[in-house]
Design a protein around this nucleic acid. Structure first.
Length: 254
DNA sequence: ATGACTCCCAGTGGGAGA
């Protein structure tokens, strides 16, 4: 079975691309981020008409997550329990014994900013919740847009990006702390091409020059790790006329 | 180079993203 994550940067713009992609890639679960739609505007009718189950949690203009799936979901959770948050960033659901947590981590804007402090608090709250989720759901996948490039090899120009947003020591320490919960970066379980990114700046022909960052990740629990047979970045949606600045990441489980 | 592009809500510009 396959699961995927994709930051679509506005589902209003990208819905046709998402439906095309699902037709070609009928994954068990597709986790979306940055839908940028209030719940009453979410295009669930179109998605359901295409044969998919869908759950959504959003707000206007910013953020917003959704879970599209072949089968129905149970145990839905919106945002991090116990962590009051105006921003719609998390949706968790169970598909049989598999717990799926879709997360859109805060961007953080710039180290030292209020938004960076929020990012740090938010990830700490996520980690605390994940700790308990893992005890009740040993088969767990955390996937989404982490807005963190975990290592220098995840950055096209590590010198230029040193200490910049997505690449600070604080963010990387938070990423490692998530791994320390017993999670594995599925992408790095396999040999991968050098210069593998999931995000390219819209500006400066960055995609054509393959100047990007690996910010979108799929972490799997210890119980699940042995079942992972592949994890790949799918650059094909970039061929669309108005692509998202992020590419999907696809996980295969035996 | 305080840039570049895209999206949103706005309203003939500006914030945010990453």
């Amino acid at each position: 079975m396959k699961l995927a994550t994709w930051n679509v940067n506005s589902l209003a713009v990208r819905l046709p691309q998402v439906l095309d992609w699902l037709a070609a890639n009928p994954v068990e679960v597709l986790a979306l981020q940055e839908t940028k739609l209030s719940d009453e505007k979410f295009p669930h009718v179109e998605i359901e008409a295409a044969g998919w189950h869908v759950q959504w949690f959003g707000q206007r203009t910013y953020n917003g997550v959704a879970l599209l799936s072949k089968t129905g979901v149970e145990g839905l959770v919106r945002n991090i329990p116990g962590n009051a948050d105006e921003q719609a960033r998390v949706m968790a659901g169970s598909f049989g014994d598999l717990r799926v947590i879709d997360a859109y981590f805060p961007n953080g804007q710039a180290p030292g900013s209020d938004k960076f402090a929020y990012k740090m608090r938010w990830i700490a709250a996520l980690r605390g919740w994940l700790h308990s989720e893992l005890t009740t759901h040993p088969q767990l996948v955390l996937l989404g847009d982490f807005n963190i490039a975990p290592e220098d090899r995840d950055v096209h120009d590590p010198v230029a990006w040193a200490g910049q947003i997505h690449c600070t020591d604080d963010e990387r320490a938070h990423f490692r702390a998530l791994l320390d919960l017993g999670l594995t970066d599925a992408f790095r379980q396999f040999e991968q091409p050098e210069k593998s990114w999931t995000w390219w700046d819209y500006r400066n022909l960055a995609f054509r020059k393959n100047q990007g960052l690996r910010l979108d990740h799929i972490l799997v629990s210890k119980t699940l790790a042995p079942r992972v047979t592949a994890c790949v970045i799918d650059k094909s949606p970039r061929k669309n006329e108005r692509p998202s600045d992020h590419a999907p990441v696809v996980l295969t489980l035996s």
